[in-house]
């Protein structure tokens, strides 16, 4: 695993210089963003790796009424097996008879393996200044263990197939006062909202691969490690839909659909983004 040793301050200083300019000269800004991205994908200067370290400690920490760690949690490849587990999530779990993403599975292990009351963990699902998130840190740690591997979620079980089909349908379902769906913003090549370029996620292949293989990510504009749960929560906000329930089946279904579009994408996380 790579650990950051330097450069966090430099990244933040740099960001404060270019962010306000993004709205001025758009071509120049886009080039700057490219250059900036290349520079900060360097793990040595990516603060997301601090979350990876915190996640590792949380994975090993004995907690809950049973006083055990998460090290025996089965993420799909067997109890405690981390390498490559994230590349195959979400997936069907026989013990719950449900398709679960990593965060749903971690909550289940906390409750059932550790006997942990997850109310506080869920309350801190998205970190804020002075309010760290166990889930963000754990996801960073676990997802990092799939680096170099390809997204390859199982789609054999009827419930996995159902989730993929529902996710696809939800992707196209319009609603809210603006009549938006995911497809409004993510179904054409090369489009932008204001200055932000929008990945076309309606097609399987490279764009979807690059997108999904780069989450979780450290978001510089939020100074936080963010997971797909947060990304979709934020997209539903922009979609003018109600706030989706954390770790709900609809978010997992959408994630299954997106992972299916992204099959074969080589994971490199935590990445770093705007």
């Amino acid at each position: 695993m790579n650990r950051p040793k330097l450069g966090v301050a430099a990244v933040l200083a740099l960001l404060s210089v270019w962010l306000p300019q993004a709205s001025r000269a758009q071509d120049a800004a886009e080039k700057e963003i490219e250059r900036y991205r290349a520079m900060i994908s360097d793990p040595m200067s990516n603060p997301g790796y601090l979350a990876v370290d915190r996640g590792e400690a949380l994975w090993q920490e004995k907690r809950g009424t049973k006083g055990v760690s998460l090290e025996q949690c089965d993420l799909g490849l067997g109890a405690g097996k981390l390498e490559g587990a994230f590349a195959q999530l979400p997936r069907y779990f026989a013990d719950t008879d449900r398709v679960m993403d990593l965060e749903q599975r971690l909550l289940w292990c906390m409750q059932n393996l550790q006997g942990l009351d997850t109310k506080d963990v869920v309350a801190r699902r998205f970190s804020a200044p002075g309010k760290p998130s166990d889930m963000e840190d754990l996801v960073a740690f676990i997802a990092n263990k799939s680096n170099g591997m390809k997204i390859n979620i199982p789609l054999n079980h009827p419930k996995e197939k159902e989730a993929a089909a529902v996710g696809e349908e939800m992707f196209y379902r319009r609603g809210g006062v603006n009549d938006f769906s995911c497809a409004t913003c993510h179904a054409d090549d090369g489009k932008r909202i204001r200055l932000q370029s929008l990945p076309n996620l309606s097609k399987a292949g490279q764009t979807a691969q690059e997108t999904m293989a780069s989450w979780p990510t450290y978001r510089v504009s939020q100074s936080a490690l963010r997971t797909m749960q947060h990304r979709l929560w934020d997209c539903f906000r922009q979609q003018r839909w109600p706030a989706p329930e954390y770790a709900s089946d609809g978010i997992t279904a959408l994630t299954v659909f997106l992972q299916k579009q992204a099959a074969g994408g080589e994971i490199n996380v935590p990445s770093i983004k705007r």
Binding site: A165, V166, M170, A204, A243
Partner: peptide, 28 residues
């Protein structure tokens, strides 16, 4: 397209509604 080839056949919209309800059901 790859997605079109692998797409599941039709899905019962009431199943989709159920997922939507469990995801947004607590909204006002």
């Amino acid at each position: 397209s790859a997605a079109a080839q692998t797409a599941t056949k039709s899905i019962d919209l009431t199943v989709v509604d159920r997922y939507v309800a469990s995801t947004f059901g607590k909204a006002a």
